[in-house]
């Protein structure tokens, strides 16, 4: 059910998935997911707990590789390249596809070292260049003004919302084109959530963003396209306003009107 018709004619696609199945051991978690992710747009994945939206997200940067006895079938193309093809460099893939997690997870190091971590492991040694990258990334993540005077302070001392924006800065520092966000605001208070949502709005001019969220209002606020998952199936994907006002499928309507989930 790859449907080009919901996107404008000239919309470029960054990710194409074709009939993706995913298995945890003998349990199948995803059933034939075919979805297009448009460039420099925000695509929200919604659905009740256990519907497979996070599993799908983690297929896109192969984070599921670390789960023993898991298996992917089908095709996931990023810029026309099959990321599960043998010989794929996972390190290169993850440089292009950054990820932000549900629970903010800064390293117990200084703010500077957190952001510089990615560039450093990819071989950047020049201190001036590192300082540039750190400043740029922190500015992009809208946290520079709050931390510029204490870059050497331990990141664990930041508030939850600041930690999450720091994690976004850390992901941006590697220079990705795509940003995967797994319920990035679900552990934050409303004010911090608003800041993250505003940030997503700013980032969409330069990045392709895929965000998993439990919160339907959030999906409605931040995303251009919304895909509804249910029990491992992709029920439908459409422009966000359409999904929330006039969905095609009854299941989608039931979910967004709060009849279940």
């Amino acid at each position: 059910m790859v449907e080009q018709s919901i996107y404008p004619k000239d919309q470029k696609m960054v990710i194409t998935t074709n009939q993706v199945n995913f298995f945890y051991g003998a349990t199948q978690a995803l059933f034939g997911i075919s979805l297009l992710i448009p460039a420099k747009q925000v695509t929200a994945l919604i659905g009740p707990s256990g519907c497979g939206k996070s599993t799908f997200l983690r297929c896109l940067n192969r984070m599921n590789d670390t789960i023993p006895h898991s298996r992917v079938e089908g095709e996931i193309l990023i810029n026309q390249q099959d990321i599960y093809a043998p010989g794929t460099d996972v390190v290169e893939l993850r440089k292009k596809v950054g990820m932000v997690f549900q629970k903010s997870n800064p390293f117990p190091k200084s703010i500077f070292d957190n952001v510089a971590y990615g560039p450093r492991i990819h071989g950047e040694k020049n201190p001036r260049r590192l300082a540039e990258i750190v400043e740029q990334s922190l500015q992009q993540a809208a946290i520079w003004d709050e931390v510029k005077d204490r870059l050497q302070a331990n990141a664990m001392g930041l508030s939850g919302g600041q930690q999450q924006r720091l994690c976004i800065a850390r992901a941006l520092a590697v220079g990705p084109k795509i940003l995967l966000m797994d319920e990035p605001a679900s552990a934050l208070d409303p004010k911090a959530t608003t800041r993250i949502e505003d940030l997503i709005g700013e980032l969409r001019t330069n990045y392709t963003i895929v965000i998993v969220t439990h919160n339907m209002q959030q999906a409605a606020r931040v995303s251009d396209y919304t895909a509804f998952f249910y029990e491992g199936n992709l029920i439908e994907c459409d422009q966000t306003p359409k999904i929330f006002t006039n969905p095609r499928e009854k299941q989608t309507e039931d979910y967004i009107t709060g009849r279940f989930g």
Binding site: N61, M63, T66, V91, E92, R94, K95, G98, M99, F101, K103, N105, P106, F107, Y117, G118, I121, H122, C167, R170, A171, V174
Partner: peptide, 21 residues
Amino acid sequence: PKGFRDASLALGATKWEMIRT
């Protein structure tokens, strides 16, 4: 915590880089 491992890997660290750093 798993969060440190996930974050390292997601930034493109190899397994050994993750363990070492």
